[in-house]
């Protein structure tokens, strides 16, 4: 009995063809060829050395598991995270200086796309990182008072540099 479904070479070919054509080609390579994704937006700025250091700590401590950096074009996102200003909806060009873009998948805490424009000083942010519940009673963020001062400062600088 010689059936197509018993032919290993055809199977391997079909398996690879579907993922490469429909998966990799259509949803990775094609969008990545779009040059507008790499053109910096008017509000994108390269990070300073301290901000880079803070960004590395932000990645290392997994802050991005609970904080998104992405204002979607939905009504509630614009209301909560962009102060009602539709101009502040995230654009691809906002992320060009971030490797990788920490866009986030969950919001256990607030979105941090424009946290720098919420009128909190770097010093106050350091205090918040050390003892979040001093500022927000129900906060379930870990206390980061075990981090050295210079790391806390760099982290706070990175966080507060997120502004348009």
């Amino acid at each position: 009995m010689n059936r197509l479904s018993d032919n290993v070479a055809y199977l391997i070919g079909g398996i690879l063809l579907t993922i490469l054509l429909i998966g990799v080609n259509l949803t990775v390579i094609l969008p990545l060829m779009d040059e507008s994704l790499y053109k910096p937006s008017s509000r994108a700025r390269p990070m300073s050395a301290t901000e880079e250091k803070g960004f590395a700590i932000y990645k290392r401590e997994g802050c991005w598991y609970c904080h998104s950096m992405q204002v979607r074009r939905t009504e509630s996102d614009v209301k909560l995270w962009a102060g009602g200003n539709k101009e502040l909806v995230s654009k691809p060009g906002d992320y060009v200086y971030m490797w990788p873009a920490l866009w986030g998948t969950q919001r256990n805490g607030p979105d941090l796309m424009w946290v720098g424009s919420r009128g909190i000083s770097v010093e106050r942010q350091v205090e918040h990182l050390k003892d979040p519940r001093k500022f927000v009673p129900y906060s379930n963020m870990p206390s980061y008072d075990h981090l050295p001062e210079d790391e806390l400062l760099a982290l706070a600088e990175f966080i507060m540099s997120r502004k348009p």
Binding site: T27, V28, D94, M98, W99, T105
Partner: peptide, 18 residues
């Protein structure tokens, strides 16, 4: 580059992956 693509293209490649 620690596995990262540039900017939002990383989000696209990562969402493909995750």
């Amino acid at each position: 580059h620690n596995g990262a693509y540039q900017g939002i293209s990383d989000a696209i490649a990562t969402s493909f992956y995750i």
